[in-house]
């Protein structure tokens, strides 16, 4: 006997993500789901961001890794609340994992919550966690063809940061090619070139962050 089911496979995840989203809005948090390959510079970006935002916007971080609390330790040094999720074997964070971290954060004392996803250019893009925006880092050492090889993440991201541009001259990475490839997948993607080690482009990133924070606060009802 055949029976109709017609159910979304990820509906359980989507439901929890909606619940997270409601909680974030209640606490007036802008939430970013930060994704990239391992070693592209997610944690370095957060360290720099914490440094620049100190005294302006209050940052909070939920960070996912397969093992160790190294990333949360690095971010905590900047007096930013950082919760480490060790996923064991999972290659991405899902809504439920993020939800499990939230009771450990004082959300009402956070303006911008960044969910630093597990380093992986594929799976994290599949799962919403309750974020306002997905953003990603592509680093020049990875190659300019990556948007074509791993399209979903580029398709889903509102912003692509191209990191390590100080290393451009040592690689065959073609900046214009990388941008064209990303825009081919996602014509509306915003692109900012940065170097976390040299500090290049970080002002443009911080402007993006503060503008999107303001944009969300403007549409939320006032507390």
């Amino acid at each position: 006997m055949k029976i109709n089911v017609m159910q979304d496979v990820l509906q359980a995840n989507d439901r929890i993500a909606e619940e997270n989203k409601r909680l974030f809005s209640e606490n007036r948090n802008l939430v970013l789901n930060l994704m990239s390959s391992p070693g592209a510079g997610k944690t370095s970006l957060l360290e720099k961001t914490a440094e620049i935002l100190a005294g302006k916007l209050r940052l909070g971080v939920v960070v996912g890794d397969i093992e160790t609390t190294r990333d949360a330790d690095r971010i905590s040094k900047f007096n930013v609340p950082a919760i480490q999720l060790t996923t064991g074997t999972a290659c991405h964070l899902d809504a439920n994992m993020v939800a499990s971290a939230l009771p450990h954060l004082q959300l009402d004392k956070i303006d911008v919550l960044v969910v630093e996803n597990v380093g992986n250019l594929v799976c994290p893009a599949e799962f919403v966690v309750g974020e306002d925006y997905k953003i990603m880092i592509l680093s020049v050492t990875e190659g300019d063809e990556k948007p074509l090889k791993y399209p979903l993440m580029f398709k889903e991201s509102a912003l692509m940061l191209i990191n390590k541009i100080d290393l451009l001259e040592y690689t065959n990475f073609n900046l214009e090619e990388a941008k064209a490839n990303a825009r081919k997948i996602n014509p509306s993607i915003e692109i900012i070139e940065i170097s976390c080690t040299k500090g290049t482009g970080l002002d443009a990133w911080i402007n993006w962050l503060t503008a999107h924070h303001k944009k969300k606060m403007d549409v939320l009802p006032h507390a």
Partner: peptide, 30 residues
């Protein structure tokens, strides 16, 4: 091939209408 352009007029103002779904249609049971 991930070419997000209208093949007819070349516009980039397109919306994705399919290809993101992931659902169980039906099952056969005994």
């Amino acid at each position: 091939e991930y070419n997000y352009l209208c093949p007819k007029c070349g516009s980039t103002r397109i919306q994705i209408t399919g290809g993101t779904e992931l659902r169980i249609k039906d099952i056969e049971i005994e």
